[in-house]
Design a protein around this nucleic acid. Structure first.
Lengths: 253, 253
DNA sequence: CGGGATATTGAATCCCGTCAAACGTAGTGG
DNA sequence: CCACTACGTTTGACGGGATTCAATATCCCG
């Protein structure tokens, strides 16, 4: 049973990947998590004029590719994405998982080209935010400007947290921290904070956390044995939140 | 000895940590690496009006602390910094090393508080860029706005690269990548790209790379044995650049 | 229903961390 | 100037946590 928030309002069209149809930011239930935070109604209207296009991305498809020309940011409306970077040799690293209300493509600003791949992990839809126009509008509205800067800064802070995780934590702590982060974000979107469906494979979790898929699987099993949670494939239920938090906070030394 | 942040701007006092003295952005030799990239002379002048203050930070002192109120960004003028984040338990992680022309404090925008510590690794000086005023000016000048966005985006891209390093690479590759990055940035600033002085300890390198100081030391020794470089304490000279690059690019598998 | 992708589990291996000792360097003050 | 100390670095031996290789189980989609 997939999470189905904000299904397209009608969309009778064939399943083209572009939809002219649109939900105004003003009436979008993600507005408090997304770019429009703090805008008044006039500003919201202007922003709406800019976000004219929506795009759906079927599961497994790319929203954009590494190296592609950067022209727009994308706000996740429904669904779930991963972003990953790759090195010259085949290795690649998942750099993040994005859910409703989160922005994709910020990495592209630096060089006018996307520097990672964005892939939908379930059928998804995004709002297309042409970047040049966003810069223009954020010169007009300082609230929008500030909110945009906050979003970029937040991404930097998040990345630093991931570095801490990758550099200092052991497998159990990494996985616990990951799950707590996931449930917290889901909770902020109105979902249960104890029961969730993993949208990604063990391998993708492992890539994000700097672990091999076998280690992720084994650690899940151990958590289950210890009564911290129930895992069955992608279905996960947290039984002992405090126990998980303790794992993250308590130094092993 | 606590950091003397933001004393009154007048304060002609002896060698306080604040200097009213100032070098115009227009005549700063870092201008092509820093915020002013692409500005015309009128715009440069406006920016100069904003960057009214310089601050010196002695080796070992903090430029800012985690949790402190965020009010300004800092552009490194001379010297060398590290930034680090810490978890509730004592562990901390170096998230970056900053040299001349690079910006510090971007993490603070997200929550109006700094979310990391910035520490000078040698006697350093920075330009203070009051953030509210920078937002104002970047609403006037789209070139400044865009350059600022590029800098933030570049930080995100860099962080993703570090994630790849921490998540996928082995000790040798991490250290090789680190050294190549360091020499490349030094080269861009007119220094030799083969000979350098490490401004940080083995422990700080290790923290950045997710390794223990002993591993860093051992790996340096191995590189030396293999004729890739000469290391003597902080003094380092690269003998086989191609060899180092090969280490980073060639998958071990 | 069947087949490919995904997940679980075990056993062996290895890279890095840990612990410990010794050395070198820099800074201080007698 | 040199002894003294604190700090950073090097190196060795050992252990452990994660990876690797491999076999099996399970799920999902057409």
């Amino acid at each position: 049973m997939s999470v189905n928030l904000n299904a397209a309002p009608s969309a009778p069209a064939a399943n083209a990947s572009l939809e002219p149809l649109k939900v105004a930011c003003a009436s979008c239930n993600l507005r408090e998590l997304c770019l429009p935070v703090g805008l008044n109604s006039g500003e919201l209207q202007k922003l709406d004029g800019l976000v004219a296009q929506r795009r759906t991305v079927p599961r497994g498809e790319h929203l954009f590719h590494n190296g592609e020309r950067f022209e727009a940011l994308y706000a996740v409306r429904t669904g779930f994405f991963k972003t990953c970077v790759g090195s010259e040799d085949g290795r690649d690293q998942v750099t993040g998982f994005q859910m409703a209300g989160e922005l994709l493509g910020l990495d592209g600003i630096s060089s006018d080209r996307h520097s990672c791949d964005a892939v939908a992990l379930e059928d998804s839809s995004v709002c297309v935010i042409p970047y040049a126009q966003l810069e223009g509008l954020s010169r007009e509205f300082s609230v929008l400007q500030h909110q945009f800067h906050k979003i970029m800064s937040r991404e930097i802070v998040r990345d630093h947290g991931v570095m801490l995780l990758l550099g200092n934590m052991r497998a159990e702590e990494r996985l616990a921290a990951f799950l707590l982060n996931l449930t917290q974000r889901l909770h902020a979107r109105g979902f249960s904070s104890s029961s969730l469906v993993l949208r990604m494979t063990r391998e993708e979790i492992g890539s994000y956390l700097g672990l091999k898929l076998e280690t992720v699987s084994r650690t899940f099993s151990r958590f289950q044995d210890e009564g911290l949670m129930e895992v069955k494939q992608r279905q996960l239920r947290i039984l002992d939140l405090a126990g998980l938090q303790a794992l993250v906070n308590n130094s092993p030394c």
